[in-house]
Design a protein around this nucleic acid. Structure first.
Lengths: 214, 214
DNA sequence: CGGGGATTTGAGCGCATTCAAACGCAGTGG
DNA sequence: CCACTGCGTTTGAATGCGCTCAAATCCCCG
């Protein structure tokens, strides 16, 4: 969700927490806000509306921050679940408030963090509005490779920790369409797919197919 | 984009500005950030990507704030154009920074403002991901009536200041589909449509059709 | 009254969805 | 060790929604 290094929570507060696969890190509507830095493992966040319908709103990788949603409202507006065994560093939000008062730089960094999310969301909305299935999936894979690369992982081979259904929910299409689209990208020689292992064969084509999302 | 009354810019700084129909209030990439309170008239904001493709990202009504995008990046990430003759109050962002240092309440209000936008965007993404044409249009009309009502206007009759193309760009569909969907809502007795005048006949049905977007 | 943009309406098509079935893989218990 | 079970994934076929292309109409504005 955000670049690493902006906040070094490990240096500020050392509350580590292990999270098992499928375990909830925080729930939607949760009152005692916390900010997390993901040390290991991947998370997904989901939004549930009154009608009970739910959508995946994001995937969150090691090295990224998590939980900055709902800082203004005082409640987490999404729920976060670990997609695999994970480890996080925690900073309670009230502690953060105290810290911010002392250091204006932290304040500014915070603003930057929030508006980065706004920009990211807007770019996501643009994609959902303009791109069809193939472009969405291409953008999704491209985004994942880039973010994993930032985290130090290989930029060519990635492992999808989430199900096709989660991907479909995130991209606004059915799980069958996700599967078919991935198959087509493989048939076109853009990707090599073996279950959840994805290898990028033709990065240029992938970028071209995903042109709308940065 | 935000509830009125959170900031009372008129009380802080009195730089008023008139904007003609079609005139640009600020451009995407603009460096000298400003925050605006819309006193009269409606605006639309659009995002343009490298490829030159552009999408409407929001409509902005009298009484709402405009320009808080890109506070962290230092540049406006969208452009704003007046859809009719308008009047705004301006506050340069650097002045705002000074003000914030003095008053912590303003700081907090600011956080709230930014995260409100995040929540709104997320709800928009949810809609784009889960709703089909009819649901999207219903949610759009419902949102507009509510926000106009907050601004003091009638909740039953509204005037669409934007074109079908703008609506389509905003909702992620073609202008023809917007037109057809509005016609269908009229045929079903939910709305009464005369060109750009829209009257809500069956608010309950409209809410039911738009169930996903709060 | 004429011109041009906005809107409506129609016809045909393609893509994504829906429903359905088969397959692969992991975990469990016999 | 192997069958069984459940879940995730793939694949197929048919439907229908929304897009594309096209033309007619409406309306605002000069």
């Amino acid at each position: 969700m955000a670049a690493p290094g902006a906040f070094r929570l490990q240096a500020l507060s050392i509350v580590r927490r292990q999270v098992a696969q499928g375990e909830t890190l925080f729930s939607q509507g949760d009152g005692h806000l916390s900010l997390f830095e993901i040390c290991a493992g991947q998370f997904k966040t989901a939004y549930t509306d009154r009608g009970g319908r739910q959508q995946i709103t994001g995937f969150h990788l090691p090295g990224e921050l998590l939980g900055q949603d709902g800082i203004g409202t005082g409640r987490h507006c999404v729920g976060a679940v670990a997609m695999e065994a994970a480890l996080v560093c925690t900073l309670a939000y009230d502690q953060l408030g105290v810290l911010c008062h002392g250091t204006p730089n932290l304040q500014r960094e915070f603003h930057r963090l929030l508006s980065r999310d706004i920009v990211r969301d807007q770019s996501m909305m643009l994609m959902l509005g303009t791109e069809r299935a193939q472009g969405r999936v291409a953008a999704f894979v491209l985004d994942l490779t880039r973010r994993l690369h930032v985290g130090g992982q290989s930029a060519r081979t990635i492992v999808l920790r989430m199900t096709r259904e989660d991907i479909g929910s995130y991209l606004g299409m059915t799980l069958e369409t996700v599967s078919r689209t991935l198959a087509k990208l493989q048939a076109d020689g853009v990707l090599a797919i073996a279950h959840r292992d994805v290898r990028v064969l033709d990065a240029a084509s992938l970028r071209r197919l995903a042109h709308s999302a940065g």
